[in-house]
């Protein structure tokens, strides 16, 4: 990988969820969602985590933004270890690291209009903005995801299609001017035609704004298209890592070969 210091470096990360005991006198066995994984993401690049459901790829993404508990391990962001930070000390990093979710239907507040959804992060991270400035910024954000502000600012999520909602999710992540975006299966719930549009949009935004992506997915064809570097996860561990070319042409782990065989070819 590049010689410059990576933007994000994960060392020996483990995430254990509390399990359930079979009998009340037994000690509950923790569920090991992620077990001792390490990787790094250079600035401006896209690193992907690929694996089937339950492999721990989403949990890894969530642990980085503290949506999942870090059991052991270190997460360095520009050399600072995020894991031991207090909630208030972590707050500035929430602005630098944003997340886009798989299900655009459930990740937007149904009671709020688009202006409200996009304003909320601005109110938290840019409290000095006036209401008029905020609205102007929201309009600009909508333009950057190729939606016309005059048509969308006052609408509610239920009035939008899946692809439009995912664009709003992307605009909300961009609102706080992040450096790293964790894309948790951003196109898995979309039609193939909309999927292509959203992927192109993500790549255009990366080129314009110099963003760094951690892309999480299960379809190797999509992952291969967007990534500079691929990590294959199975049962909480990284079983193979390499450039898209290496993974595609010289897969060494049997699990990677299964994933490759599952992609429809025609």
């Amino acid at each position: 990988m590049s010689s410059a210091a990576p933007l994000l470096e994960v060392r020996d990360l483990s995430v254990h969820y509390p399990g359930r005991a079979k009998w009340f006198f037994q000690k509950p066995e923790p569920k090991k969602a992620v077990a001792n994984i390490s990787f790094s993401i250079p600035r401006g690049k896209t690193v992907s985590l690929v694996g089937e459901s339950g492999s721990g790829k989403s949990t890894t993404g969530k642990a980085i933004v503290r949506l999942a508990p870090v059991t052991t391990g270190e997460i360095f962001y520009e050399g600072v270890n995020l894991a031991p930070l207090s909630t208030s000390a972590f707050k500035p990093y929430r602005k630098k690291i944003q997340m886009i979710f798989q299900d655009p239907y459930n990740s937007l507040n149904p009671r709020s209009d688009i202006l409200g959804i996009l304003s909320e992060p601005l109110e938290i991270h840019f409290p000095h903005l006036s209401a008029a400035d905020r609205e102007a910024r929201c309009a600009q954000l909508l333009q950057s995801v190729e939606l016309k502000p005059e048509n969308y600012l006052r609408r509610h999520p239920h009035e939008l299609s899946g692809g439009q909602r995912q664009r709003i999710g992307i605009a909300r992540a961009l609102a706080v001017e992040p450096e790293l975006i964790i894309c948790d299966e951003p196109v898995s719930a979309l039609d193939v035609s909309v999927q292509a549009e959203v992927i192109n949009l993500l790549q255009d935004l990366q080129a314009q704004l110099g963003l760094t992506y951690l892309f999480i997915g299960h379809d190797l064809a999509v992952v291969e298209h967007v990534s500079d570097y691929i990590l294959v996860m199975s049962k909480g561990q990284i079983v193979e890592r390499g450039t898209p070319d290496q993974i595609l042409h010289h897969p060494t782990h049997p699990y990677t070969q299964t994933l490759l065989a599952a992609v429809p070819k025609f």
Binding site: V192, S193, A196, E224, H225, L248, H249
Partner: peptide, 21 residues
């Protein structure tokens, strides 16, 4: 043609995916 073209395929990296538009 558009529906067929917009699916990313293994081993055929393109700068951009073709969209229906």
């Amino acid at each position: 043609k558009g529906l067929i073209a917009c699916i990313p395929r293994l081993g055929q990296r393109r700068r951009r995916l073709t969209t229906l538009k």
